[in-house]
Write a protein that binds this DNA or RNA. Structure first.
Lengths: 178, 178
DNA sequence: TCGCCTCCATACAGTTGTGTATGGTTATAT
DNA sequence: ATATAACCATACACAACTGTATGGAGGCGA
């Protein structure tokens, strides 16, 4: 057969399953079937289901915040970070993000992961708004509103296009500047 | 013993369970135990679990949109509806709302219910913003952003108080007027 | 009072998931 | 060549949930 499976193989399948079917599908038996092996493999790599789910959350936690922020800092010369942030945040499908947050409403471990990500991202937006010259208390309030709006957009899962997207970005940028 | 149970008793328990433990707790056996009866009662009132969950969603659907809108129209003379809407929307805990939306990420029936509620509420906010004198395309964009922000606030589940709340409402109202 | 309808209990069969124990296979180092 | 460790299959015991079949208790009209 193929090569032996690694922990990463199980985590990748977990993220894909989470994205496509939600956290309720993170079960050893269906995952093993999808992987084409028996649960013996699963229970060799992970102590139990809770350990696996915690590993999935850690995996998500590592990439969720830093990937976007790193991208912004990298393109600082091409485009204002906040402008680029809004354009990218409100331009993608966010199925994995939505699945994790759905998970977080009923699982304390997932909730902790989400809260950590939220603090990281919100703090970054706050710093950008302060750099743009807004008084601190106004910057904090608007950063919160912008981040809430991002969460709401993510939740509704309707992609933006054309004139509607342009109009929305214009109004969002209005929150970010004067 | 007590009186015989009605369908409404099961629906009320369902909404409470949904609020406190999430949609994964909507199962016949635990609910019957919580009710103090056997599953025989459950399966007499409902054909199966799917029928019960559909009934729960219809129950939620009936009250979720209309209760707030009716309240606003009733107090039209006391306070501008939009001002009152923002104050009330961003002032409550919204556990049930969050549970239903978590449910909606993995269940098409729940998703349909949420989408119907979203259209109803968003349309109402759009009409309020147009009444306040904004051009139609700007009203649509800002209504969308305000509603997204409400969803994000609901999702994060942190109650607002004091100066922070005042600051946020001020910035939200800014989106609604000039 | 007889029969019916409502509401619920009990018992059974079946499904799906968990976790553990045990042993087999393959590669690799010695 | 063989011992060791990594990786996986198989089998077992157990738990939780679903749905159905059947019967019993209680009210209520004819």
């Amino acid at each position: 057969m193929g090569d032996p499976l690694s922990i990463k193989d199980w985590l990748d399948l977990g993220l894909k399953t989470l994205t496509d079917q939600g956290f309720t599908a993170l079960k050893a038996e269906p995952l093993a079937k999808a992987m084409g092996v028996s649960r013996g493999s699963f229970y060799w790599h992970f102590a139990d289901i809770d350990a696996y789910r915690a590993a999935i959350l850690n995996h998500w936690r590592e990439v969720a915040a830093e990937q976007i922020i790193a991208d912004l800092e990298e393109h600082r010369r091409d485009e204002p970070p906040l402008h680029r942030l809004l354009r990218r945040s409100f331009g993608n499908r966010l199925s994995l993000e939505r699945a994790v947050r759905s998970w977080a409403t009923s699982d304390p471990v997932a909730r902790k992961a989400v809260e950590a990500i939220d603090r990281r991202r919100l703090g970054y937006v706050e710093s950008l708004l302060e750099q743009s010259g807004l008084p601190r208390d106004i910057a904090l309030a608007r950063a919160q509103i912008l981040y809430w709006a991002f969460l709401g957009f993510m939740l509704s899962d309707k992609p933006l296009t054309g004139k509607r997207q342009a109009m929305l970005l214009e109004q969002l940028n209005r929150m970010a500047s004067p």
